[in-house]
Amino acid sequence: MNEISVQIKINNNNYERNIKPNTLLIDFLRDDLGLTGTHSGCDTSQCGACMVLHNNSAIKSCSILVAQLNNQEITTIEGLQDKDKLHPMQNSFRNNHGLQCGFCTPGMIISAISLFNENNDPTEDEIRKYLEGNMCRCTGYQNIVKSIEEGAKDMREKG
């Protein structure tokens, strides 16, 4: 099987690599680039811990090949903050105790930003519905929803 050359922009950095065609995005991020903020949970497209932003929308990096993303752009959890300043959604998760063990959190925050990009003033019901692809096994959904409500408010105010 021939290696293929791909160009991909991740967190505003351009990468040009030769990869095996069966390289999943999650493995490329974690193993090749050392971007371990994106977590591999279920590896079956259920749990959402591996979510990244593609065209401002959350997708599951365990279920897409790097080869499918040639000449495209991805943002991971590491790409959200501005230098030392956390993204408002990250800040809101911190302020509202929106995490316990933290394993699902990168996916939750990516999903929350994806929701905001579609609907900048989501109701509690809309937030809960949108999180159907994100699982938290610490049963911390109350504070996750609260974090997203406040994070969305901060994002609206900061324009």
Partner: peptide
Amino acid sequence: GDPAVRKM
């Protein structure tokens, strides 16, 4: 599915 699955 869920939102991320519906995107793809």
